[in-house]
Design a protein around this nucleic acid. Sequence first.
RNA 1: GCCGCGAUGGCGGAAUUGGUAGACGCGCGGGACUCAAAAUCCCGUUCCAGUAAUGGAGUGUGAGUUCGAUUCUCACUCGCGGCACCA
Length: 816
Amino acid sequence: MQRYNPGEIEPKWQQYWDAHNSYHVIETADKPKLYVSGMFPYPSGSGLHSGHAFSYTIVDAIARFYRAHGHNVLNPMGWDTFGLPAENFAIKTGTAPAEVTKDNIANFKNQFKRLGISIDWDREINTTDPEYYRWTQWIFAQFFKRGLAYQKEAQQWWCPVDKTVLANEQVENGKCWRCGNEVEKKAMKQWFFKITEYADALLNEIPDLDWPEKIKTAQTNWIGRSEGMAIKFQLNGLGADKEHLEVFTTAHDTIYGVTFMVVAPEHPIVERYGQFADNQADIELYVEKAARKSELDREIEKKKTGVPIEGLFAINPINGNKIPVWVADYVLLSYGTGAIMAVPGEDERDFEFAQKYDIPIVFTTEQQEFVDYSHIKADRKSYRLANSDTFNGMDFETGRQKIMESIKETDAGDMIVQYKMRDWLISRQRYWGAPIPIIHCEKDGAVAVPDDQLPVVLPEVKDYAPKGDGQSVLATVEDWVNTTCPECGGPAKRETDTMDGYACSSWYLLRYADPKNDQQAWDPAKANYWSPVDYYVGGDHAVAHLLYVRFWAHVFNDMGLLSHKEPVKKLVYHGYINAEDGRKMSKSLGNVIDPLDIVDQGYGADTLRTYVMFMGPIELDSSWSSKGVAGVYRFLNRVWTLSQEYQSAEKADELDSDNQLRRLTHKTIKKVTGDYRNLSFNTAIAAMMELVNELYKLKVNGFSSEWQNSLRALAQLIGPVAPHLASELWQQHGGENEVDSAEWPAWDETLVLDDTVTIVVQVNGKVRAKLSLPAGTDEKTATETALADENVRKFTANQKPAKVVYVPGRLVNIVV
RNA sequence: GCCGCGAUGGCGGAAUUGGUAGACGCGCGGGACUCAAAAUCCCGUUCCAGUAAUGGAGUGUGAGUUCGAUUCUCACUCGCGGCACCA
């Protein structure tokens, strides 16, 4: 008898699938479509890690399961290849990023094949391929024409020593990652996508998404919609009397409690009027310090600091009170108007600040002590207004409405909606990204590169290191930068910033539908056939990527390029695999498990795949267990061995145990099918293990021809998780074609139902006996049998039951 | 701090609408095969008492609803994840 040898059967089937292009699909009306994809990988130099193996096994199991159910399954693969690691490697070694990337892709592709992932390789895409980013650029140009891409000044991290812009991840503890000097914020002109215009549209669709609740709430909070009032306060002193200071507040009902105003250090009025203040030097010093503070410092330094702009006041529109204006970095320029009305009686931050700087505190609730506004907001009816003139004594529900009307009457403010979400900063001063397809002309300003001049190909350079002028290396390629304006034909310069990598990944799921189209980004008919993605599998990017793909799809829908707004129907968000010691896998800890090592050790891809699916529910984090891997290998071995024994055994025509065999098999088919459908892979595998254990017990009676049906069904059932073994066994048992193009086994409901059932007998809710009764036993018989049971009688003491609860087919509960 | 999720044997986990808690796997104990070991196969395995039948306790803690709660409600403790001075 041949031993189970994955090292032999796995390459055999991988070559077969390759040679037959088994997983290539085209649009067809004959079958229901099913589009499943993992989040495409960044092909790093170290190859697939265990997280990849997990993610793409989930994808593949779904793909194979539905393929076996007659669906037209699209399971594509592509490479998210722009980004920092390749660029840094290039800076260090001088190797072109494209070269490094090419090798890494080849390695990844090979490894995916060795895991038996059923991919349609004809649809392979690569974001750094000019034929791909040509359309990324085209989309940018479309966004630009629609006013969804624009330029504005924004704060960027700037290293004054290296004279370069830094990305967030290049700032470590407020210091430049390369030279170690302190970085500062600097205002520079940047490109943005106007995602805020779609804030409401994106928010409105969230409740209907079949996505994990935690991702939905993360996105809801990220968008952060809040309704409040924009209120203008007249300025006074330092020559500012003609100006207003506008604030945003959700607590306008506390406006009588405003005892000071706070503006962000970057707020324009600071520079405009601070110079006339007596404490001008202090203000300047404070602003400068705030600019240098990294986000981390701000976090550590929880204590609030600030300086007043001496001599500058604001007039409270509701009562004419003259209020001092302060500068403090706990107010952010980027939210609301960059200025607040401070209400220390009801806001914790303002309270802390007022105490520290001895600013008066006015309580506007009848409690006359500090009450955080979140409490008031939670139950407005229970709090009453105080120190609020004619509004005193009103509950906050009424007072809020009346004060709002009163403020509106004075023309000082109105209700508005604010979002926490900011526009998406898309420009990067880096080499290894898709060039922004814009030409700057002195006469015509920023002009989109015409469609027929796309792609704007990334020029080759010798040195990839930034030159220190705050621009990307592209700025040094003069004959690339200098061009002609498409509008006027005059001399013009190319934009030298490249796009954030997230741009490339915001539309790749649509490109898979039509990956080789050189006339358009995709044919809408093809995209509308495949999209939305039915299952999108990943364990990362709760907001960023998963919000951007939604944003772009909404825009594409508006452009008429897509028939629907939401690109992902069901999001499968899986957990992390930790190391055996329970900690995160990391090279420095030396606890990394390389999935290909597991394959090479002789376990094979099927064991690896089945193991990662058996570890637990996919949405939970788990820890690697080498003992667990061995256990799964044992299981696959048992499946194999059973099949070999059957094939070489003498088969009886029929056995007494055949009916039992049939019942077991049909029950398992039903259970496993349901579990796969719910993505409950661990219990599906457990059910198959249970069947195999039972089959081992049954085989002592010998084999009959009935076994053929069971073993074939078993081969099909393990197919989604262990496709090589399944294919091999399927072939051995005379199955035609490939296992996942065979019809999925059906079950007979009458065989699934047991003819005898175990009825639990409880007395006062405690189990006292178990009865084996024919299915469908009526209540009267069941109760009588239960009452007659010896052990039950011990506990009922022959008393007449006060009540009997009967659950058909399950239990009798006798209450005495 | 806010939001979301979770807590079940020695361990990972199971229990589809409230109805036998601990499926399946690991580990552990015992047995078969073997000169022996590995591999394989079989049996047992929540804890306590008992040879056993059986009894008692038991799903983070405390209460509640119910004939019956791992499941529902309230309060709390701990852990994980996301966001974080968002006015």
